[in-house]
Amino acid sequence: MQIFVKTLTGKTITLEVEPSDTIENVKAKIQDKEGIPPDQQRLIFNGKQLEDGRTLSDYNIQKDSTLHLVLR
């Protein structure tokens, strides 16, 4: 499925993911596309910070959902 990740600069990254993917996996995909190390990434969905060990389906993230990427 496709999800979107919006950065603070207003750029939107499109990712191909599975609901069973962990947040860690998603961060690795963002690193592949953008070169941002996962330990600098914080992903936010519906105002909640997403934890590495959880999956997209844990957070009820579905296709065409938009996550927000904050760098630390």
Rank of each mutant, 00 (worst) to 15 (best):
M1Y: 03
M1D: 11
M1A: 11
I3V: 11
F4V: 13
F4R: 02
V5R: 00
V5A: 06
K6L: 12
K6A: 08
K6F: 10
K6N: 13
K6M: 15
K6G: 02
T7R: 11
T7K: 08
L8W: 03
L8D: 10
L8S: 08
L8Q: 13
L8R: 09
T9Q: 04
T9Y: 02
T9L: 15
G10A: 09
G10E: 09
G10R: 07
K11T: 12
K11F: 06
K11D: 14
T12Q: 12
T12H: 06
T12V: 11
T12E: 04
T12G: 11
T12F: 11
I13Q: 03
I13T: 15
T14P: 09
T14K: 07
T14L: 12
L15V: 15
L15K: 00
L15T: 01
L15Q: 01
L15F: 12
L15I: 08
L15D: 00
E16K: 12
E16G: 05
V17F: 05
V17I: 11
V17W: 02
V17A: 14
E18T: 04
E18I: 12
P19E: 08
P19L: 10
P19R: 06
P19N: 13
S20F: 12
S20N: 14
S20L: 14
S20I: 14
D21Y: 10
D21S: 10
D21H: 05
D21L: 08
D21Q: 04
T22F: 04
T22G: 12
I23Q: 12
N25Y: 11
N25M: 07
N25T: 11
N25P: 03
V26F: 07
V26K: 00
K27Y: 09
K27V: 06
K27T: 02
K27Q: 10
K27L: 07
K27F: 06
K27S: 02
A28H: 13
K29N: 08
K29E: 09
K29T: 07
K29H: 11
I30P: 00
I30T: 03
I30Q: 00
Q31G: 11
Q31D: 10
Q31Y: 13
Q31K: 06
Q31T: 10
Q31V: 07
D32K: 03
D32W: 12
D32T: 14
D32S: 04
D32R: 05
D32I: 07
E34P: 02
E34S: 10
E34K: 02
E34D: 02
G35N: 03
G35P: 03
G35M: 08
G35Y: 03
G35I: 04
I36Y: 10
I36S: 14
I36M: 14
I36L: 13
I36F: 13
P37E: 15
P37A: 15
P37T: 10
P37F: 13
P38T: 14
P38G: 14
D39G: 04
D39L: 07
D39Q: 15
D39R: 15
Q40N: 13
Q40L: 05
Q40R: 14
Q41H: 14
Q41T: 05
Q41E: 02
L43A: 01
L43I: 13
L43S: 00
I44N: 15
F45P: 00
F45V: 12
F45T: 08
F45D: 03
N46T: 12
N46P: 01
N46I: 06
N46R: 09
G47R: 04
G47N: 08
G47Q: 13
G47E: 05
K48D: 14
K48W: 13
K48R: 09
Q49I: 14
Q49L: 11
Q49W: 02
Q49G: 10
Q49T: 05
L50G: 01
L50V: 05
E51W: 03
E51A: 06
E51D: 07
E51I: 09
D52N: 04
D52Q: 12
G53A: 06
G53Q: 10
T55Q: 10
L56Y: 01
L56R: 00
L56V: 08
S57H: 05
S57D: 11
S57M: 15
D58Q: 07
D58K: 07
D58R: 11
D58E: 11
D58Y: 07
D58N: 06
Y59T: 02
Y59N: 06
N60Q: 04
N60D: 14
N60E: 14
Q62Y: 10
Q62L: 11
K63N: 13
K63A: 08
K63E: 13
K63I: 07
D64T: 03
D64K: 02
D64L: 04
D64Q: 05
S65A: 07
S65Y: 10
T66Y: 05
T66N: 06
L67S: 01
L67K: 01
L67Y: 01
H68G: 03
H68D: 04
L69I: 06
L69E: 01
L69V: 03
V70F: 13
V70A: 06
V70W: 03
R72T: 14
R72P: 07
R72A: 14
